[in-house]
Nucleic acid binder design. Structure first.
Lengths: 210, 210
DNA sequence: TAGATTGTTAATCGATTAACAATC
DNA sequence: TAGATTGTTAATCGATTAACAATC
């Protein structure tokens, strides 16, 4: 840290930096200047230097940034090697796809439980884990203490589930439901994946091109 | 329109307005003031009035906003009743889930084609549509003229596919791949659904709570 | 040392909030 | 008419860009 306030916009750029640096690293590139990096990422050199300086002096005048070092530092800032236990709730098409598709491990997440309210799904194995009935959610959380919950359930079911989980070990939600967690529960950490909002924004842009 | 420049932040709030208004409408609520609406959505009354005034005078002094009317107007602004043909490319776990899970019709989208490069998937029926081989993409686009493409393919395959499609009828991408379309092709409309970036942001917040 | 490029301050730009006159 | 609430302007706040001295 450098004692500065980190803006939301900056935080949202960090994963992008991390992604591009990972790519450069795997290509064997050793160093990059803020100018070159700006071109690659579609941002400005000023912004990149400002962002990075919120967290430390990672560069070197006259040289630029060491890619491997910077990649590691941003990974640390993002907490990607801190273990985080995750449960997933709702095993519809989407929940199943999320369970199978996401590379949780590469970001320090560990999927430890999968739940659904449908009795008929119980026992089914997804990504090596048995689907459990939501009735066992309380007990499971008290034993295993997951800190993150992925919500792939309908809007109506979300309110109760969020309340239940915030009363247990869950501190953050990755929210695929249309329920607005923040509005009802402002202290909790929420990352929304609102597919509908995204598609509507796309629709707006299509309709208002120039 | 009201002749004003629409900020990106404003555009991203429109779907949220639309969602809440739809809910209120279905509950039979007739009117709402910017103050009440602010409380419901977690925004400020000023912001809501500013946003709406970019597009027109939808309210009435001393009364507030007519919910049904406003819902309709925002729907028009977002272009949700303008028909938009969509193709989906990549039928892995995620592509399949997106095809089956999204309510395209409610936003004016019409899923017209599903593609994958894997020969063995060809002919499989998903949401009433047969999976086609990507080799037929050119011909299909020239005949059907889809304007939106959903990318559920790996990063490496994305570059070529984006180039191919932008040379045809496709004007906008709903991007689930990790490929940065905008950086390479700035004139195209892109909505990113970067799962990884979202999970990394969540990780950051978990690690930097106060 | 000369050249390059950072770290950081100052200037600009844009978005949000506050205030209030207009008006239903 | 009185009360409420918008539409809109002005004030504030924050983020981005530009500039440059520090320094490798």
């Amino acid at each position: 840290m450098n004692g500065k306030v980190i803006s939301n916009s900056c935080i949202r750029r960090l994963p992008r930096y991390y992604r591009f640096l990972g790519e450069l690293k795997s290509k064997g590139v050793l160093r990059i200047s803020s100018g070159e990096f700006a071109k690659k990422t579609g941002l400005t050199a000023s912004q990149i230097r400002q962002d990075l300086n919120c967290f430390g002096d990672f560069g070197q005048q006259g040289y630029g940034y060491n890619i491997e070092l910077l990649h590691g530092e941003i990974g640390k800032i993002l907490g990607l090697s801190t273990p985080k236990k995750v449960i997933l709730i709702g095993v519809g098409n989407l929940g199943k796809a999320v369970a199978q598709h996401i590379n949780f491990e590469s970001m320090g997440y560990q999927l430890v439980g999968i739940f659904d309210k449908k009795e008929s799904l119980a026992g089914q194995i997804i990504r090596g884990l048995p689907v459990r009935n939501v009735s066992g959610l309380d007990e499971f959380c008290r034993e295993v203490n997951p800190t993150v919950a992925i919500l792939c359930i309908p809007k109506d079911a979300a309110a109760i589930t969020v309340n239940q989980l915030t009363g247990l070990s869950v501190k953050a939600f990755w929210n695929f439901s249309h329920y607005d967690i923040k509005v009802h529960n402002p202290d909790v950490i929420v990352e929304n994946m609102h597919f509908g909002d995204s598609l509507m924004t796309l629709s707006y842009r299509l309709n208002n091109q120039d």
